[in-house]
Each structure stands twice: as C-alpha cells, then as structure tokens.
Simulated scan of single mutants.
Amino acid sequence: MNMHKLVKVLASAGIAATVVTSAHVASGDDGMNTVEAAESKNSNYKYQGDTGYGDGNFLLNDALIKTLEEDGDLAFNGHAIEASETDYEKRAKKKSEFVEEHDQKFTLRGGTATKVVFPIQEETLSIDEVTEAYGDDYEVKKDKDDKYETYVYKLGDQKDEAEKNVIAFKVENDFVTQGTIGYSSSY
C-alpha cells in the first residue's frame, strides 16, 4: 500500500495520519518502495531501496520529519545516519569512507554515516510541497553558476543550532532533484 493510499484509508476511517510515529520503507515486488507504519514510543524511520525512481513523497512523510525533529533512529539501506553538525564534528577527524547503496551515496566517518545524498525523479516533488511539509524556517544557498538553489532545514528544538538535524533539498526550476540528510560544509 503506498503512502497516499494509507493516508486516504486513515482519513476515510476518521483516524488522524499523525498517529504514524514510526515508518519502514521497503521495496515491494512491483519495484516500488512501500511504507509500513506502526506506533512506537521512539521516533524512527528506515528506508530500503532506490529513491530516484519514485515521486519523492517519502520526504514529506510525517514519520521522517518527526524522526529528524526528535533525533530518532534514522536509517537508509541499513546505514544509521547521524545528521547534525555536532554529529559530524564529533567524527570530522576520522577518515572519510564513501559508500553507495542503491542510488544513494553515503559519507561514513568512523563507520557512522554522517550524510546521505540521493536523487529524486525530475519534476515530481515541488519545493512548494516541501515548504508546506517542513515550514518556512530554511536557508537558501545559491549555486555559484546560478543553476540551482538548495533549501537547508535544521530540524529540532535544541537551542544550539549545531545539534539540529539537517535536511537539504536541491531545487531546479521549482522542483527537488536531490536530497541530502546530514551536515555538509557546502551543499
């Protein structure tokens, strides 16, 4: 069942979609990624499979956003991701290792992923949909050649900005073409 159908089913049953606090995304037999949701006391989000063949709506998933906001357990294709600048700084002196799983590129430091970069199918996820889901508290960074912009969100209620989890959206012609979860000195 895809997320749209899940939300429609929940909505038609009168159940608020915000009950979803944990999600697991797995690739189904049809090659499409699916979301399995369950209630949990801890926020966590696990993603399996490619990101670049779908419509990118997994980025709008309440469970993903909540996991980033609450610094819960976040994993893509089996790699746990520590996504704040503080997490990065703790490991900055360790040797970087670059790993690819499906269509995602991970930066590992000391065996821990501090960043994952992934493609989003062109012209499927608009930046308007992203700002509707994540809000207006973002920083826009321009590409030096002015070909794209990157919207950078720091999520969480920590007082220290460096402790907030980072998610960034590369935007070309008002559509997201790439996502990054984790701190980077440049996007």
Rank of each mutant, 00 (worst) to 15 (best):
H4A: 07
K5G: 01
K5D: 06
L6I: 10
V7Y: 05
V9S: 04
L10F: 14
L10K: 07
A13R: 11
G14A: 05
G14V: 01
A16S: 14
A16W: 01
V19E: 01
A23D: 01
H24D: 14
A26F: 07
S27W: 13
D29K: 12
D30I: 14
D30F: 10
M32S: 15
A37S: 08
A38I: 14
S43A: 05
S43N: 08
Y45T: 03
Y45K: 02
K46P: 01
Q48H: 15
D50C: 13
D50L: 11
D50T: 00
Y53S: 03
G56N: 07
L60N: 12
L60P: 12
L60R: 14
L64T: 06
I65M: 11
T67S: 12
E70A: 06
D73N: 12
A75C: 09
F76Q: 00
G78I: 01
E82S: 14
E85M: 06
E85G: 09
T86F: 05
T86H: 09
R91C: 08
R91Q: 02
K93S: 14
E97H: 08
V99P: 15
F106E: 15
F106C: 12
F106K: 07
F106W: 15
G110A: 10
T112F: 14
T114N: 15
K115D: 02
K115I: 10
K115W: 01
V116W: 09
V117G: 01
V117S: 05
V117W: 02
P119L: 03
I120R: 02
T124P: 02
L125D: 08
E129Q: 07
V130C: 00
E132H: 15
A133V: 02
Y134K: 02
Y134D: 11
G135V: 13
G135H: 07
V140G: 12
K144W: 05
K144V: 03
D145I: 05
D157L: 10
D157I: 01
Q158H: 04
E163R: 10
K164Y: 07
N165D: 06
V166N: 09
A168L: 00
N173M: 07
N173V: 00
F175P: 02
V176L: 03
V176N: 06
Q178Y: 11
Q178H: 12
G179F: 03
Y183K: 10
